[in-house]
Simulated assay, not measured.
Amino acid sequence: MRIITRLIAVSDLGNRDIARRAGIPMQKISDLLSGRLEQLTLDELQTLRRTIDPQLTPP
Rank of each mutant, 00 (worst) to 15 (best):
I29T: 12
L56H: 05
M1Q: 13
I52T: 02
I4F: 03
R16A: 08
L56F: 09
R2Y: 02
L37W: 07
I8H: 01
L13G: 00
P58L: 14
R2Q: 12
R2D: 11
Q46R: 09
A22G: 09
A9F: 03
I18M: 05
I29W: 01
I52D: 01
G23T: 01
L33K: 14
R36M: 03
R16T: 14
T5S: 06
R20E: 11
D17M: 10
A9N: 11
M26L: 13
R2E: 11
G35W: 12
R49K: 14
V10G: 04
I4H: 03
M26R: 13
T41I: 03
S11D: 04
R50N: 15
Q55S: 15
D12P: 02
M1R: 04
R16E: 10
A19L: 08
N15F: 03
S34C: 07
S30A: 11
P58A: 12
T5N: 02
D43P: 00
Q39E: 14
Q55K: 15
G14C: 02
S30D: 06
T57M: 14
P58E: 14
Q27L: 13
R6Y: 10
M1H: 11
E38H: 11
L48K: 01
L7K: 07
D31V: 01
A22P: 04
T57N: 09
L45I: 05
P58W: 09
R49W: 00
L56T: 07
L56N: 04
L37H: 12
I18A: 06
D43G: 06
Q39N: 07
L37G: 02
I24R: 01
Q46T: 08
